[in-house]
Amino acid sequence: MITLISSDKRKFHVLEEVANQSLTIRDVIEDRRGRRRADRIILVTNINSKIPEKVIVYWLRHFLMPEEIAHASMSHKKAEKLKKWEAKFFDTDIDTLNDLILAADSLDIPSLFDGACEKVSDILKNRSAEEVGEISKIENEFTHEEEEEEIPSENAWVWRNEFA
């Protein structure tokens, strides 16, 4: 069992086999193998407690269904179920997605990282710049001229509506 401590000092106890899904944690554990018990405590100071909770939920779901097995021999029904579960898991507010991406990046959890990035790309997809700006709070600091002429002319074909 290892212990993760979040930035707001909450402790999370996780089975080593489960936490191994983070390549960063796996390496840390490997480095400290054979040492004192206290070394099985890992500080994850860059993330607040809400995120480890979610990450551990994700780990547990995937631990029960390791990906190699999932791809090779998972039944269609089970695959659908996992897909549904993931869709629900990532269906969260944009701040949480942002934190999940950063956590997955620093803890090196490739599938979580990809999943969260893909969800963000889904949010960006098929929306106007104004809509995206509103959702993501991106501040548009372009001048009218840049916005109306300069940028669209750089890559003209992407602004054409070919079906119009």
Partner: peptide, 30 residues
């Protein structure tokens, strides 16, 4: 602007999930 806190490599990774057309259209965001 939450997205500004993400490093460039991550923004690039996010854009790798959409078509190039959609990716280029993000150039108008900021």
């Amino acid at each position: 602007d939450w997205i500004s806190s993400l490093p460039d490599e991550i923004l690039t990774h996010i854009l790798s999930f959409v078509t190039t057309k959609e990716a280029v259209q993000t150039s108008i965001l900021s």
